[in-house]
Structures are given as structure tokens and as C-alpha cells.
Write a protein that binds this DNA or RNA. Structure first.
Lengths: 99, 99
DNA sequence: CGTGTAAGGAATTCTGACACG
DNA sequence: CGTGTAAGGAATTCTGACACG
């Protein structure tokens, strides 16, 4: 499941370059809980390629005039749906084991 | 062909963490032409996940007492073989187009 | 609300060199 | 040859704040 796309290894400078967003914006979207980079011991942020993709989605939605809290709600909704899907998968698997 | 694995986005500090190698070693293997990171405008090195994997291979071979120039020759050999394979693929493709 | 910017400091990285073996 | 280390400087990142709208 976790692969290179999820490894938090990219600095904010590279993310800025990859997405075209300013560092200010990237930090702000974190403040608004849209992304969740990790930190090194020293405190510098590290992002994954998934974060980069997410930021590009965010950029699109911001351009469409959406507000950060709306975007956040969408992401949360999406995550719930993914989790439910996985849960159902597990339940089915167990069910199949029984019979 | 080029994917996330080939994107040069990782700093030497992260590479050191991921591979367990010291930064000194990582820079030295570059000096010996075993790896080829890119540079930012500012001059800091950026590595790809492929570089990270390559470094782990290098570490293994160094442990086995191999010398850097040997390891380098191996890599070059491997690259030639890959290129040849691709070339043959292209030739076959063209040949198949003709008939 | 979303974003720019100047400010001061801290973490990160760089190079060239000396050392050892 | 391969690697550690101290040295000085440059690039990168961080936070909190003020500004505008």
C-alpha cells in the first residue's frame, strides 16, 4: 500500500517548484489542515509525491473560488469513503473465510 | 518510463537517512561517478528514489570489498545491456511494421 | 480569508583540505 | 582508496507579525 508516493522526503522548495505554488501558500494549506507534511528532527517540512498531487488539486479548487474549509471537508469525505470501502472488503473477506 | 522513481527531489540529508550512509560517502560515490544527482539553482544536490536504491546496492557491494571503479564498470555494463535491449525492441517493431 | 513580505534565527548543505591507512 | 572531521560560507527553511482587502 505505502510506496514511494507516500514517502515524505521532499522539501518545501522542491514542492513549490513542482506545483508552482509559493511556499507561503503551501504552509497556509497546512495550517488549514489540507496537507500534513512530516518534520525532520530539525523541524523542516517533508512532503510526499501524494502531497504534491494533492496540492495541485487544491490549487485547481482554489482557482474555482472554493474556500479552504470546503476543500478540507471534501478530502475528509473522500477519506471516509475509502475507509468504508476497505472495511467492507475486510468484512467480506472474513465472511468468506467462515463458509 | 520516467516516473516518481526518477524524479530528483530528495536532499542528501534524507538520502543519508534512507540509506544509512553518511553524507560523506554519498558525495564520494558521486565523485567516483556512481551516482548523478541534479542540483538546484543554489547548488544543493537532489536525488531520486532510484538513486537511493542504487546507493543501497553500492553499499552492499562495498561491504563485499568491491572497489568503486568496479562497481562503476558493472553499472555501465548494465546500462549498455538495457540500451541494447531497447534498441532491439525498436528494430523489431520497425521490422514488424514493414511486413 | 488568502497571500505577500521583511526580519532574525536556526537547520541544512557545500567545498576544499588535512588526516589515516 | 575510502572515509572522518573541523572550518567557513552560502542556500534553505522556520516562525510570528504586519499589511491589504
Amino acid at each position: 500500500m505505502a510506496s514511494y508516493k507516500d514517502k515524505k522526503v521532499i522539501t518545501i522548495g522542491m514542492v513549490s517548484e513542482l506545483t508552482g505554488l509559493t511556499e507561503r501558500k503551501i504552509r497556509y494549506y497546512e495550517e488549514r489542515k489540507l496537507i500534513h507534511p512530516e518534520r525532520t528532527k530539525g523541524g523542516t517540512r517533508r512532503y510526499s509525491f501524494n502531497d504534491v498531487e494533492k496540492l495541485m488539486t487544491i490549487a485547481d479548487q482554489m482557482e474555482d473560488g472554493m474556500q479552504t474549509f470546503e476543500i478540507r471537508k471534501r478530502f475528509e469525505k473522500e477519506e471516509r469513503s475509502v475507509r468504508n470501502k476497505m472495511l467492507r472488503g475486510q468484512i467480506n473477506a472474513q465472511f468468506n473465510m467462515r463458509k
